[in-house]
Amino acid sequence: MFAALLTLGALSGASVSAQMIDTPAEYAVIMDHATGKILYSKRGDEPMTPASMTKMMTAFVVFELIDRGELSLTDKFTVSEDAWRRGGFPSGTSTMGLVPKDTPTVEELLHGVITMSGNDACIVLAQGISGSEEAFSRRMTEMAHELGLSSVNFVNTTGLEGDGHVVSAEDLARLAKMTIDKYPQYYEWYSLPSYTWREYTQANRNPLLEVAGADGLKTGHLESSGYGLTASAVRDGVRRTIVVNGLPTMAARAQESERLMRVAFQSFDLKTIGPETLVLPDVEVWLGEARAVPVSLAEPIEVAGHKAAFSKANVEIVLDGPVKAPLKKGDQVGRLVITMEGSEPTEAPIIAEADVKKLGFVGMALEGVRTFISSSND
């Protein structure tokens, strides 16, 4: 692999002295929604215990089945005694307040999952759709893998303690993006302040719903995982999503989530780099009538990262091998890779800005002699 290192003059604005962020959360992620780029990650790619943030996937699978026509919001499922005992009031866990032989609709159960965090609602949906919670959990894992969420292994629908029940913070952020983008009509439910099933009302536990622009998603808590939250917000047309987990108290979760969401908007930026704004050096051409060819970005790219990192960003032109003639204007000759501290690299194709014909027989012979002399001198 060949690489030409450049100075990133086009991205370098005024020098920023702000320090890169940190957090007391054991796991944390900040994601730019438009690009899907991870702006900040603390152990974000490590599988962790998600607790009730699991329910985002439970709901997503139901959304998918409705979208495919395999399920309807008006379908009804009967509450089993098992669902009541393991997820209802007798369980002592988060509940929708269902009792055996209740027949809630799929829509009511989804509200029970999303707003009330009802473990009974999750189990009823799983048993009604797949026959058992175990079977539905396997379906959740399989669908997550199909979506590219490779860290996922779900053994239940609720997020209650389960051996090997894990997902990474980065994959939770990606799941949030998929939910928002694909199912906006259901995503609105994540912002409801409360929901009532018969006489039982449960407030939404998301502490960020009172913060400007916040409109979802899901909290989680177990003794083994600490307090966690996946949350998303929009300000001035820009959406950012955060995930935190492993905080010691509910108050710490509320405070740190609000701080990280504020940091997500104040400390990170999104810049558009166009072909006309980034001047690149010519790329050497092998066996061409011209020794080098001018190159440019194929199209504008968006680069997201901490504001302090833009002034120190690096750019590379990466070639997978020697660029050989003949070339036509518009041919891809390599990739531009922009690397900034704390962010994933951004890549974009580089194209030739001119035609380059291949040398004839005599020209190739002379080039061979030139190469031989050059190597001998070396």
Results as ranks from 00 to 15, higher is better:
Y186H: 08
T103V: 05
A83V: 12
V283I: 13
S311W: 14
A18W: 13
T141Q: 09
Y187T: 12
S343G: 11
A304M: 05
E170V: 08
Y195G: 00
G321F: 13
E26L: 11
V263T: 11
S117Y: 00
V356K: 04
E107G: 09
G87M: 09
L336H: 02
F154E: 10
G288W: 12
P47G: 06
E107K: 10
K358W: 07
N156C: 10
Y187Q: 12
I123A: 08
M143R: 14
P326R: 07
P50C: 06
L98M: 05
E188S: 11
N119Q: 08
S376R: 13
D331A: 08
M56H: 07
A212Y: 14
L8Q: 11
Q202E: 15
L172M: 13
T219H: 04
E81P: 00
E367L: 02
D67W: 09
G228K: 00
R335P: 00
S80R: 05
R239Q: 05
E142L: 08
G213C: 05
I114H: 05
A365L: 15
S137T: 06
H165E: 08
T7P: 03
V318A: 11
S225C: 01
F77C: 10
A173L: 09
H165K: 03
R370A: 11
M56V: 08
F63P: 00
P104C: 07
S17N: 10
N245S: 07
I351D: 07
D378T: 09
A121E: 11
A231M: 06
E258H: 01
N119Y: 06
E108A: 10
I114W: 02
A173G: 02
R174Y: 13
H306V: 12
A214H: 02
S137F: 04
L98T: 02
P104V: 00
E341P: 00
V124P: 12
L209H: 09
A126W: 11
T23I: 00
K324D: 12
M364T: 15
T58A: 14
M1T: 15
A34K: 12
I351F: 12
L297V: 11
V234S: 09
V285N: 02
T219C: 05
V323I: 08
F372M: 13
V62P: 14
V16P: 03
T78W: 13
A144P: 10
I66Y: 06
R253G: 09
R291T: 13
R291F: 12
G118P: 03
T272I: 07
A28H: 01
R253T: 04
G216Q: 08
L287E: 15
V61L: 14
V234H: 01
T241V: 08
G342Y: 15
V29I: 15
E289Q: 15
S137D: 10
S132Q: 03
M57C: 03
G220T: 03
S117V: 00
T115G: 07
G162Y: 02
A252K: 03
G118L: 08
R262P: 03
L192A: 13
I317D: 06
A10D: 12
S17I: 12
L39Q: 04
F89K: 06
K328P: 05
Y183D: 08
T230V: 15
Y195P: 01
T105I: 05
G162Q: 00
G274H: 14
